[in-house]
Structures are given as structure tokens and as C-alpha cells.
Simulated scan of single mutants.
Amino acid sequence: MTAEQTTQRMPRWLPRAMVLGFALLGLFELADWAVHRLLGLFILVLVAFFVALAMEPAVASLVARGIGRGLATAVVFVLLYACVLAFSAALGVLLIHTVGNVVTELPRLLNEGVDWVNHAFHQDFTVQRLRDRLLRESDLIKGYAQSAADHAWGFSYTVLGELARFLTVALFSIYFTVYGPRMRRAVCSLLPAVRQDMVLRAWDLAIDKTGGYLYSRGVLAVISAVAHALFLWLLGLPNAIELGICFGVIASFVPIIGTYLAGLLPILVALTVRPLDALWILLFVILYQLVQDYLLQPRITARQVEVNPAIALLAVMAGGALHGAVGALLAIPAVATLQAFLGTYITRHEVPEDPRLEGSPRKHRPQQE
């Protein structure tokens, strides 16, 4: 064999390297496919875990009174889902009545709106003329109706999907709550003694922050619901109790913009009954928000970790993108838990006084000639 033939021969390791490369590529594609398939389930399990953390203080309180952990978990979750169903029922009744009132008052609202436009802009519109124009553009209306009919199946599929996700979170959260101590013991058994204390401390912080956050939100929701329901009842607004419940829950459990969203519905109802009441509702909402921010919330949420508003908004957006309303609700306690845990183990150093830290302009020293 000549030297040229020896140099042209394929190295012995090359076929095995190629087979190994293709095998690793196949494993990577398989892992990528599995991650994309299981990511949704992982997020549901994570949400269920945080729900279990939130329920742990109530369950532990009942267990401390001699009630079995299984029965205590059942009692807590029955009460939780009863509250969810009550809120859903109140919201459903409220929407039905509101839509009915809007439909009933629609002719009067149209006449008043057309009169205002004519008076403000010096026009001569009439309801009959607007209706004739709308009928002439009926093809556009038919197009919207056809589009809505085409999306009916997609809407039904979405509702069923959300129901399945809710049931998945409910089942896993009940399981995590019942077997919480066993899970902690199982996790600690895999770690050395030095790491076990860190895991248990992080677990306790998560329970304290998540459960405390939701408990304080629940107390604020009850106070807000009672106050607003009583005020709406004094105004004589229909469905005052349902409006108060919806306002309290939305304003307390929707972070950052909850109060503004909650105030829209009673204001809309007032506009269909007595428009002047909408102004009184707006003033009461602003006044109550001030009382809650400066009197109620500091006392009720004294144990909570303060989270920067920008970080809280970013966390809510990320949680909502991952798992809708539930993810947005649990985003802030998750960030508070992480902040408290990092604050325990991160060493902070003393910073000397410097005007640049206070935002003061830097003074330039005159150059010596």
C-alpha cells in the first residue's frame, strides 16, 4: 500500500463519530419535541403548586386543631371553590341584567346621544336616518355575523380547553396540599444536611408570602365588596350586591389596574339608569382607593414584601402570558418569595454618601490654570 492510499483512507473514528453525531441530533430533536409538548403541563403543575402553597396556612391551622390533613384539605378547597362559584354566579347574573338593561334603554340612549351630537356639532342626524344607513350596509353586518359563526366552534374549543386546565390545576393543587409534608421530606432526603435547611427555608418563605398575599387580598376584597355594595344600594342601583362582589374581587385580585377595571361596570350600569350616579360612583371609588392605600392596606399587608411597581407589572404580564388570570394572580407572590429568599442570602454592603446616588448634578471642579 502506497503512502498516498494511506493518507486517503477514512479514519477509523470518523464513522463512529458520525453515528454518534446523528444520535445526539436525534436525541436533541426528541427532547425539543417533548419539551414543547410538556411545557403546558409543566406550567399547570407549577400553578397548582403555588395554589397549594397558598392553601397551606389554612390547612395547617385546621390540622393544628386536631383535624386530619385530608379532611382539612377538603374543607379548605370546598370553601375556595364555593367562593369561586359564587363569584362566577354573581358575575353571570350581573352580565345578564346589565345586557337586558342596555337593550331596554338602548332607544333612549340613542335618542339622547343623537341629540347631543346634533347640539354639539350642529348636525341634523336622526335615528331613522342612521338606521337606514345601517341597513344599506347590511352586507358588512352579514360579514361580521358570518365571521362570528365561523369562530363559534373555536370559542367552544377554547372554553372546553380552559375548563380542562382548571380541573387539572384543581386536582394537582389538592394532591400537593394533601401530600405537602411527604413531598418536603422526599425532596430533603435527596439532599445533604447542609442543603436541607436552605430548601426548607425557601419552602417556608413561599408558603408565607403566597398564603399571606392571597389572604390579605381576600380580606381587602371582602371589605371592598361590602363598602361598594352598601354605597350602590344607597344610590338605589339595581343588583347592588352583585356589583359590590364583582368590584371587590376584581379590584383586589387584579394587580395594578384592578380598581379601574372594576369601576367600569357599575359606572356603565349607572349610565343606563341615572347618569348622574356615575359621577358619584367615580368619586366614591377614588375616595375608597385612597382609604385602602393609606389606611387598610398597610395594616392588612404589613407582613408582605414590597415589590417595585414596575417589577410587579412585568411579573403580572409574564404570569398572564403563561397561564392567564391565575398566572397573573400568582405572579406577585412568586416574585415576593424570590425577593425574600435572595434577600436572606445576598450580602449587602454599606454605601458611602454621594450626591450622585441622590440624583444631584455632578459638580465640576474648576480647572487650575
Rank of each mutant, 00 (worst) to 15 (best):
D132H: 13
D132A: 13
R133I: 09
R136G: 14
R136V: 10
D139K: 12
L140C: 04
L140S: 10
K142P: 04
G143F: 08
Y144A: 05
Y144V: 09
Y144N: 03
A145V: 09
A145E: 05
A145I: 07
A148V: 02
A149R: 07
D150Q: 15
H151C: 00
H151G: 01
A152W: 09
W153R: 14
W153Y: 10
G154V: 02
L160Q: 01
G161H: 01
E162A: 04
A164F: 03
A164P: 00
F166I: 02
L167W: 05
V169S: 03
L171W: 03
L171G: 14
L171K: 09
T177S: 15
Y179K: 12
M183D: 06
M183E: 06
R184G: 14
V187E: 02
C188H: 04
L190S: 08
L191V: 07
L191H: 10
A193T: 15
A193M: 11
A193W: 02
V194P: 03
R195Y: 08
Q196D: 04
M198R: 15
M198E: 14
R201D: 15
A202S: 13
W203F: 07
D204W: 06
A206P: 04
D208V: 11
K209G: 02
Y213C: 13
S216H: 12
R217V: 03
R217P: 00
G218H: 03
G218A: 03
L220A: 06
A221T: 09
I223E: 08
I223C: 12
A225G: 13
A225V: 05
A225K: 11
H228E: 10
L232I: 08
W233D: 09
L235K: 09
G236E: 05
L237E: 12
I241A: 15
E242N: 14
G244P: 03
C246Q: 11
G248N: 02
V249A: 07
V249K: 04
I250A: 04
I250P: 01
S252C: 00
V254F: 06
P255Q: 03
P255M: 02
I257T: 01
I257R: 02
I257H: 00
I257C: 00
A262Q: 01
G263C: 11
V269Q: 13
L271E: 13
T272G: 07
V273W: 11
V273K: 13
